[in-house]
Computed example of a mutant assay.
Amino acid sequence: MPGKTDLATFNCSLARALNDVGDWWTLLIIRDAFLGAQRFSEFQRSLGMARNTLSDRLERLCAAGVLLRGGALARPIYSLTEKGRALAPALVALQQWGDQFASENRPPVVVTDQCGRRLPRVKLVDRDGAEVGPEDLRFRPGPGADERTRARFQAAKSVRKELK
């Protein structure tokens, strides 16, 4: 069986992010960390996953700087780093998507603010605060784009011109 592709080598921030947090166990571990889980046993009890899989994912999340391993060597405590906490908007957006399309608008868990008010749907807004829909999005090479990425955008631009 071929090995897993190393997405960290892609010239794409989404691919690189998925390299660190892109499988379902990893996202559920991060979710549980947001819910207060700190110890191996708490993650395992909540998720019911194999010990070796959990150990591997926790190690990867620590290596990626998403979780910090602290406390006693024999009984470590895991906590979200700033990098891990910065995943909150992405996790809430994915959960809200799941509420709508996977849970038939019957959310099993509701996310609220500190006052208990349900959060509105996560959305993209422009600098003036106006909502930006998928049809409004535009993508272009950024400052970290390599030649291959620039060529891909140039090729797509040529195809669009031909279709007009």
Rank of each mutant, 00 (worst) to 15 (best):
G133P: 01
L94T: 08
F34H: 12
L27I: 10
L68G: 08
L7A: 07
T149H: 11
W24D: 11
Q38L: 03
F101D: 12
E82C: 01
D126L: 13
P76R: 03
S55N: 09
D6E: 12
L28S: 06
T112I: 01
R39S: 09
P120I: 04
G3C: 01
V159S: 11
A17T: 15
S103Y: 09
D126C: 10
R117I: 05
D20W: 04
N19K: 13
A64K: 08
C62Q: 13
D146I: 13
L137H: 14
I29A: 01
F34R: 05
G116M: 00
E131A: 11
T26A: 10
P134T: 13
N52I: 06
N11C: 15
D136M: 14
A93L: 10
R60G: 07
R16W: 00
L87N: 02
G65D: 00
A86K: 02
A155V: 02
D128M: 12
R121Y: 11
E147L: 15
E104A: 15
R45Q: 10
R148G: 10
W97P: 03
L58Y: 06
R51W: 03
Q38N: 12
K161P: 00
R138N: 14
M1S: 13
A17W: 06
R118H: 08
P134F: 14
R57H: 09
R31M: 07
T53F: 01
R138C: 15
E135V: 09
E131P: 07
R152F: 01
R51M: 02
T26R: 14
G84Q: 01
V132M: 11
A130N: 13
L67Y: 09
Q96K: 11
L27N: 03
A93S: 12
C12D: 15
D146E: 08
